[in-house]
Nucleic acid binder design. Structure first.
Lengths: 201, 201
DNA sequence: GTCTATATATTGATAGAC
DNA sequence: GTCTATCAATATATAGAC
């Protein structure tokens, strides 16, 4: 058995507990969720959690850190693929919006439960968040340099764009009228308007 | 002693407890806050809370409902004062942004802790939220009618504008670089861009 | 209307059988 | 690696003295 396969998150039971914790945290919040809630959703006894994970807080840490890293990877890939700043921003907005709309349950935990982490774990996540901000800001600055974007303060604008994307996870509910595709398309168009890009054909 | 003065929230001690609860809920979340936390912040014993309020949940309900009502009143007043849809939207954005930036502590509880309310209390708050949405959507529809705004879906656009304002309360921290006035001005300008209004002089 | 003391339930986490 | 049983701490809320 390899090192990787022995690590907690690699076993099927460990993953099932992580998924149960994600669903519970998204619905009730970290502090509103008991370890018994998580165990019940995973179809196991409360004690089983501690065979695979160190603590309830570590469950949140694992969800939050891996979630943040996956978003960062996704937008970096989207950003690299584009040619012009407008292309890159459009791809990044699509990727970022899709993560928050389709993955709204996971994203709700990732983006809104950070405050329940220990200070050290919160700093690990914050570092990834800074990189996510840098990806956005760099594209905006590049677009300002080429004249494609009309933006007075790229830092503030990138915060707004990220904010609008993140907040999808708070308000979006699939049982309502809009599909994720509609929400993402609207987000992408809104982002282009915010930076003052020329309307797309 | 009048009826009003005898109601719980009207006494000084009751208000002090409400303020302490607001600060605690904003920092730790509803479920992360104990009644002992609240009592300690108010400089009272845990038992004192129950002289002035029925339960911890009722504290949140009072904060959340009165907060929502105050926002609704503020944007209704701002909306009525304007002449053109652009004027009205600008005033509403200023009012809505100011509430969330300057009142970010209170707004964080009002907007992000709703899920901890009982179903009945959640519905009371949701009714006010629907009115807040209607105020925004009506202005956008009016602007589309006059040709001042270029918006394909007024419902989605009003959700975006509200979302961008609400989310200020999540990310804004006064100890960072930006003043509330800067954040509000940027929000107001961004809102006008989102609806496709002509840039202001 | 404030307090100390406490009832009662639930919490996160562990012990030990299998 | 799963379970049942349980520990110790903490939760919300109340009782009763002053």
């Amino acid at each position: 058995m390899t090192q990787e396969k022995r690590s907690a998150a690699a076993t099927a039971a460990a993953a099932r507990i992580l998924d149960a914790a994600t669903a519970a945290f998204a619905e009730l919040g970290f502090h509103g969720t008991s370890t018994r809630d998580i165990a019940a959703r995973a179809g196991m006894s409360p004690a089983a959690i501690y065979v695979h994970h160190r603590s309830k807080e570590e469950l949140l840490y694992t969800i939050s850190l891996s979630g943040h890293r996956r978003v960062l990877d996704a937008i970096r890939e989207a950003s690299a693929a584009g040619i012009t700043p407008t292309d890159r921003l459009e791809r990044v907005a699509h990727s970022f919006g899709t993560w928050h709309a389709e993955g709204h349950v996971r994203a709700r935990v990732v983006d809104y439960e950070m405050g329940a982490l220990t200070a050290a774990h919160q700093e690990d996540v914050a570092a990834v968040r800074r990189d996510i901000g840098t990806v956005h800001r760099s594209i905006i600055e590049a677009g300002v340099a080429t004249g494609e974007f009309a933006v007075a303060d790229p830092s503030m604008t990138s915060v707004s764009i990220i904010s609008l994307g993140v907040d999808i996870a708070r308000w979006y509910r699939p049982e309502k009228a809009w599909t994720t595709a509609q929400v993402v398309a609207h987000y992408r168009d809104t982002v282009l308007r915010i930076v003052g890009a020329a309307p797309r054909s």
